[in-house]
C-alpha cells in the first residue's frame, strides 16, 4: 500500500501507533482463531496420521491390553518393527497373499477404469459440446445424475439389474438371443473376457456409469474454454472435424486430460462402497480391492497393525500419484 509521500511527522507518529495497535490486534486475532483451529486440526487430522504411522509397527488389536491406557500399545500389542512390511515381501500366509491379490486387483481395476473413463467422457464431452446450449444442458444433466446418487444406491440398483434370474440385463439378452440366457455377472468365477474376470469387468462398468459425469463436466468446461480463433482458422483452412480435434483440441486439452487422469486414478484406488455392496470382494476374491482388504483386516479380523501397514502402501501409491499431479498442476499454471 502506497501511503501518500507527503505526511507530516505528527501523522506519521499516529500511523505508527495505529500500526502497532493493529499488529497487536492481528496477534490477538491469530491467537483467537488459530489456536482452536489448530487443536481441532491436530485432534482429528494430525493425531490419526501419527497414530496410523505408529500402528503399522505394532501387532495391534483394540481388544488386547497395552501398557498405556491411551494408545494401548505394548504388552499384548507388541512392537514388531518392520515385520509387517517384511512379511509383505516374504511371507506366504493367508493375510499376505490376500494383500497381494487385493493390490493386484486394485491395479487392475484402476488401469481398466482410467482409459475407459477418459476415453468415454472425452467423447461424450466432444459430442455434447457441439450441440446447442439448451440440449447441452439437458444431456449434461442426464449424464451427471449418477454422480449425485449415493454409491450404495447405485450398487443396489446394479445388483438387481444384473441379477441372474430377475435382472434386466439377462432378460434383454434372452430377448436378443431368442432363448433363455442366464449369466452370473457378479458371481461366476469361471467367466473371463480377455483374461479379466467378468465380475471385475462388471464392477468396472457399474463404477464407470457412476463416475463418468465428473470428468464429463470437467472436459466440457475445458472445451468451452478453448480459444475459438484456432478452430475457426482451421475451419477456414478446410480442416475436417477429426483433424480439428486431433491437431488442435486434443493438444490444447493435454494438461486437463493429464490432471483429470490422476484424479480419476486416485479415486479408483480408493473404491470401496460400490464393491462392498455389490460383490463384497467375491467371487473367490476376484473383485477384492485394497481398501476392502484393509477394512476387513482392521475391523473384521483385528489385524489393525497389518491393516495400517497396508494403508501405508496405499498411501505411498496415492502420494506418488499426487506428486505427479502437483507437477502437472504447476505446468498448467505456467501454461
Amino acid at each position: 500500500m502506497s501511503l501518500s509521500a507527503h505526511i507530516n511527522p505528527q501523522d506519521f507518529k499516529e500511523t505508527l501507533v495505529k500500526r502497532r495497535l493493529r499488529n497487536a490486534g492481528q496477534k490477538r486475532f491469530l491467537l483467537q482463531a488459530l489456536a482452536p483451529l489448530f487443536i481441532y486440526f491436530a485432534v482429528f487430522s494430525l493425531l490419526p496420521i501419527i497414530w496410523a504411522l505408529t500402528l503399522m509397527f505394532f501387532e495391534y488389536s483394540p481388544r488386547r491390553d497395552g501398557y498405556d491406557a491411551l494408545l494401548g500399545l505394548g504388552k499384548d500389542n507388541p512392537f514388531v518393527g518392520l515385520s509387517h512390511f517384511k512379511a509383505m515381501f516374504q511371507s506366504s500366509s493367508k493375510e499376505v497373499s490376500s494383500f497381494h491379490l487385493s493390490l493386484k486387483n486394485s491395479l487392475l481395476f484402476s488401469s481398466l477404469v482410467l482409459p475407459l473413463n477418459i476415453a468415454l467422457s472425452l467423447c461424450l464431452a466432444l459430442l455434447i459440446e457441439s450441440i446447442p446450449k439448451r440440449l447441452r444442458v439437458l444431456f449434461r444433466t442426464l449424464f451427471f445424475l449418477p454422480v449425485l446418487s449415493s454409491s450404495v444406491a447405485v450398487a443396489i440398483m446394479w445388483g438387481f439389474l444384473l441379477h441372474p434370474q430377475h435382472g434386466l440385463v439377462n432378460s434383454l439378452l434372452s430377448t436378443f438371443n431368442g432363448e433363455l440366457t442366464i449369466i452370473s455377472w457378479l458371481s461366476d468365477p469361471r467367466l473371463s473376457f480377455l483374461g479379466v474376470p467378468v465380475a471385475m469387468l462388471t464392477v468396472v462398468v457399474a463404477y464407470l456409469w457412476q463416475d463418468l459425469g465428473y470428468n464429463l463436466i470437467i472436459f466440457t468446461a475445458a472445451l468451452q474454454a478453448l480459444p475459438k480463433q484456432f478452430m475457426e482458422a482451421a475451419q477456414i483452412d478446410g480442416a475436417t472435424p477429426w483433424q480439428c480435434f486431433r491437431f488442435i483440441k486434443l493438444p490444447l486439452l493435454y494438461p486437463t486430460i493429464a490432471l483429470t487422469s490422476i484424479f480419476t486414478l486416485i479415486s479408483a484406488f480408493q473404491v470401496f462402497d460400490l464393491i462392498e455392496v455389490l460383490t463384497n470382494g467375491g467371487p473367490f476374491d476376484q473383485t477384492k480391492v485394497l481398501v476392502l482388504d484393509i477394512y476387513q483386516n482392521a475391523f473384521r479380523f483385528e489385524r489393525m497393525g497389518f491393516a495400517s501397514a497396508e494403508s501405508f502402501v496405499l498411501f505411498m501409491i496415492v502420494f506418488l500419484l499426487s506428486v505427479m499431479q502437483l507437477r502437472l498442476l504447476r505446468q498448467r499454471w505456467n501454461y
Binding site: S45, I49, A52, L55, I294, S311, F312
Partner: peptide, 8 residues
C-alpha cells in the same frame, strides 16, 4: 486416503 486414518 481416508482409509489410512480410519482406524485411529
Amino acid at each position: 486416503p481416508f482409509q489410512v486414518t480410519m482406524i485411529p
